[in-house]
């Protein structure tokens, strides 16, 4: 059994941070607990954030999509705002995380705060310009998701609470496609790529390429993005695509491990980047709808 002295339940973000700092001993936040119960990290107490009022999913009057940290992955699959945003890309990525019972409790905040290089919600949220909201006892801070991860299993949080992430309304109409490459459907990602393109007037106005499991933290391939942004859609020839994908593959820094070699991972970044951009540029959008049950 997991050796815990105390299970504390917070009813607001400020209380969660206060309960965390109260001691005695070492504490940790817990949301769905699907990572915590697997790993039983050494701590004296946990602070449950499921009742802290950070589980809502909402569309702001300005059109931004807010995902509370304690929103469950199944909540992201089912919610209509999420299913509509950027063609349902976030719902689809959530539907491919874990299995059905895991998604009932696993949260988007837990996925990001656990900060694995392979965290499956990170690439799609990075590709849609997510901003993180962080609570301290008496103030809030926001910062881009790109600055949230500082290393494998490390974030900027320290003992503060992730309240949620917001996706800007401008991204709602972007076309986004993501791919999770795994050995079996249940396994940890070998490579993830998420691409989103904001298109207008026959031009790619905005381009985002986000990569997971191929560097110490989930990352954006910014050099490759710059090559696409501002291009006429008709100018994105197979040669241009090959160059963009090669640059993206050069930007990552994958590891060799028992699942795959670094070389294979880098090759797959190349292949998937090319395929996803092609899919977005040639699709009528229908087969990018959000996931199934």
């Amino acid at each position: 059994m997991w050796n815990l002295q105390e299970y504390r339940i917070a009813s607001s973000p400020a209380e969660a941070v206060a309960l965390m700092r109260k001691g005695p001993g070492k504490g940790a936040y817990i949301a769905g607990g699907t990572d915590m119960l697997l790993e039983h990290p050494a701590c004296d107490f946990v602070v449950d954030v499921n009742n802290a009022g950070i589980g809502d999913i909402a569309r702001t009057p300005g059109g931004d999509l807010f995902l509370g940290a304690a929103a469950t992955l199944q909540g992201l699959v089912d919610n209509n705002f999420v299913r509509e945003f950027a063609g349902g890309a976030i719902s689809k990525s959530a539907s491919q995380c874990g299995n059905r019972p895991v998604r009932s409790t696993a949260t988007v905040g837990g996925n990001l705060c656990n900060a694995l290089p392979s965290a499956d919600m990170a690439p799609v949220l990075l590709a849609l310009d997510a901003t993180c909201y962080i609570a301290d006892e008496d103030c809030q801070e926001s910062l881009p998701l790109t600055d949230f991860f500082v290393g494998p299993r490390m974030t900027v949080l320290e003992d503060r609470l992730l309240v949620g992430v917001a996706l800007p309304g401008e991204c709602a109409g972007w076309r986004c496609a993501a791919h999770k490459l795994t050995r079996t459907a249940e396994d940890i990602s070998l490579v993830q790529v998420a691409v989103s393109l904001g298109m207008d007037d026959g031009k790619i106005q905005e381009a985002r390429i986000a990569l997971g499991a191929v560097s110490p933290v989930p990352m954006r391939a910014v050099l490759a993005e710059t090559m696409l942004a501002g291009q006429e859609i008709t100018a994105v020839t197979p040669d241009v695509l090959r160059d963009v994908a090669t640059i993206a593959a050069g930007e990552c820094d994958p590891l060799d491990d028992h699942r795959a070699s670094a070389e294979y991972r880098r090759d797959m970044v190349n292949v998937l980047t090319r395929r996803l951009i092609t899919r977005i540029l040639t699709d009528d959008g229908d087969n990018m709808e959000g996931g199934a049950a």
Binding site: G33, T34, L37, D48, P101, S104
Partner: peptide, 18 residues
């Protein structure tokens, strides 16, 4: 697997206190 407030969950992945 059990239902927690109607949703299927793995009871091994839920802390009883919750």
């Amino acid at each position: 697997t059990v239902l927690l407030d109607g949703q299927p969950v793995n009871s091994c992945m839920v802390v009883a206190a919750r």
